[in-house]
Write a protein that binds this DNA or RNA. Structure first.
Lengths: 342, 342
DNA sequence: GTGAAAGCGCTAACAT
DNA sequence: ATGTTAGCGCTTTCAC
């Protein structure tokens, strides 16, 4: 806390006040080797008395900024805050601070923001479900320690944390099939980029749906829109226009399920009486009383915690072999799914 | 884009490549006075060819970091993304980058994060509905240019952008009263701190409710909980336990209304058949089909745009007189409010 | 209009 | 264990 107006307290002020060298102060700040207890005490006291806080921006010029950047694709998706909490909790007792990029929705945005983070000297980056093509991710990870969350596929240059979307999709399909449904449609987020087709969670979920349906001997009915409320609305309209309507809809994300529910309400259909609906992500509003959406829980808190842990390890040792953490989803059954209507 | 491995391209590299001084490059970067067109061209070309990006962290040591920090209290509140979009859109064509603090829920968190932002050399801060007591806000604003969003009350040291919560509350009360309701309850976020009582949006909304009720000659029925889903749930339970139940509930925030709806659903009451419910903020999920909540729209995009504009102006001239922008809310009627049940 | 040189606050070699 | 010194990449006087 510096006193309103006036110059910032610097390491020089602290050194002078404690009657030691700036090096000594610097060492104490970083718990570096070569400081006697008595010197540490003196410095600590001077820091307290002057209300000194190191200027992270300046530290970065030689060492680290103690800042970790998190890139998240869509701040509106209520799944991401859970991840963030996991990151924050893991970083709480370290010297690192988290700063988030504003949400972005294109490769260009992502490039701009990650560059901005690098230019601001961030020590490491956590990228949540990034859109950037694989080669760019790898290049980025060579420049700055990085952990990629949500994207399947292995890289030697960055660590990854993913949730098993194949299993998650199967949880929903099996749940619905067990309820007697045979015509289960899936609304996916359209994906054309080849590497993303194998890496992005949306594509993997669609693949999981296909596999599970085949395993149960059921026919696949896939609608491609986007992971937005509007995408769900449009997808549902397509499904309702079918000569042979599905009895259950598996939306690739909760937000998509919201659009589906809206469309069904407008069409005068009851849920789950006329049609069962399931989402994915177990977001905050899936649990809301008036919605009560069956969904898949990804344990966002753990995802975030793991990502932060991996990043700290990579910052400490950039040469360490890359790690892949894969977590398992769980099914959360609520009121939007029910037995096949007679 | 630097080539994967290897040193970062610096201003020295650019200067050498363009056969000019580093000063010249610096001037071109900042559009500073004293550069001939020919020199500018040379420098621009060198920058392109080398893929140079200025290192913001280093710039900050002498000049600016071209970074603006945004502190937001709760990343889960779907109202804030609208503000953020407004900020982003206004800053898009400038050299400034936005970085967000992780959401925080205490004065201590806020202090930590704002300090972290200052220590990282941010050029200005936008504080959204901060909890910090007035004197600390003023001290902060003396250290770094700041704009405070959502808090009523005037300061000489920072600019403010608020929405007229008195009017907003009246919009709801009048809407419900016009529908014939006479017993309209309000669920507020409990506030005890004296300065916050007059400055925080929640407190002002409650005051607006009181004023509007008095104007209509109606009796006040206030329940104090918190602006959370749980707060709404508990508040509704209290109201339902009354010997004389209200026929309409005005929740101080959409998220509170969600809790109210949950409680009403559980109690087997229909909305708006048995009871009308209104929220505040017009968040994304208020518009969701299955919810369709009557609410008050705060024009978050404009709020953010104004905040960013004011901040840029203050960064350019720290001595400029402080400005207060006050925006007007609008009513959004949906399906959770209806005529007084017979 | 242009460039040389000093220095922002800190850390990292290198003495001692 | 402690201090001295030289930068990190940039901006800013201040000469020319």
């Amino acid at each position: 806390m510096d006193s309103g107006t006036g110059r910032r307290v610097t390491i020089v002020d602290v050194a002078r006040h404690a009657k030691v060298s700036t090096t000594a102060v610097s060492k104490v700040l970083r718990n570096a080797y070569g400081t006697s207890p008595s010197m540490r005490a003196k410095v600590q006291q001077a820091i307290e008395e002057l209300g000194y806080r190191p200027y992270a921006a300046a530290r970065g010029l030689r060492g680290k900024t103690y800042t970790i950047g998190v890139l998240l694709p869509d701040i509106r998706n209520p799944f991401f805050p859970d991840i963030l909490d996991g990151i924050k909790d893991t970083l709480r007792d370290t010297d690192y601070q988290v700063l988030l990029g504003p949400s972005c929705d294109s490769e260009k945005d992502e490039a701009t923001i990650t560059n901005a983070m690098i230019d601001r000297g961030m020590d490491g980056l956590i990228l949540i479900a990034p859109l950037l093509p694989r080669p760019l991710l790898e290049r980025l990870a060579k420049t700055v320690p990085a952990v990629v969350v949500g994207r399947h596929g292995h890289s030697d240059h960055y660590d990854t944390v993913t949730d098993d979307d194949i299993t998650g999709a199967a949880l929903i399909v099996n749940h619905l099939a067990d309820l007697g449904h045979r015509h289960i449609a899936h609304i996916e987020h359209r994906e054309t980029d080849p590497t993303r087709l194998s890496e992005m969670p949306n594509a993997v979920r669609a693949e999981g749906y296909r596999q599970a349906m085949r395993t149960r001997g059921l026919e696949i009915d896939l609608v491609s829109t986007t992971y937005t409320q509007e995408g769900g609305y449009l997808g549902a309209q397509q499904l309702l226009a079918r000569p042979h309507r599905p009895t259950a809809v598996f939306a690739g994300a909760d937000i998509v399920a919201m659009g589906v529910l809206t469309a069904l309400t407008e069409a005068g259909l009851s849920v789950p009486g006329d049609m069962s609906v399931a989402g994915y992500d177990n977001t905050t509003f899936a649990a809301l009383g008036p919605i009560s959406l069956t969904s898949v829980d990804q344990a966002g808190h753990e995802i975030g915690g793991n990502a932060a842990r991996l990043l700290l390890a990579r910052i400490a040792d950039r040469k360490r072999p890359s790690t892949q953490v894969k977590l398992s989803p769980t099914l959360v059954v609520r009121r939007t799914t029910g037995p096949l209507p007679l």
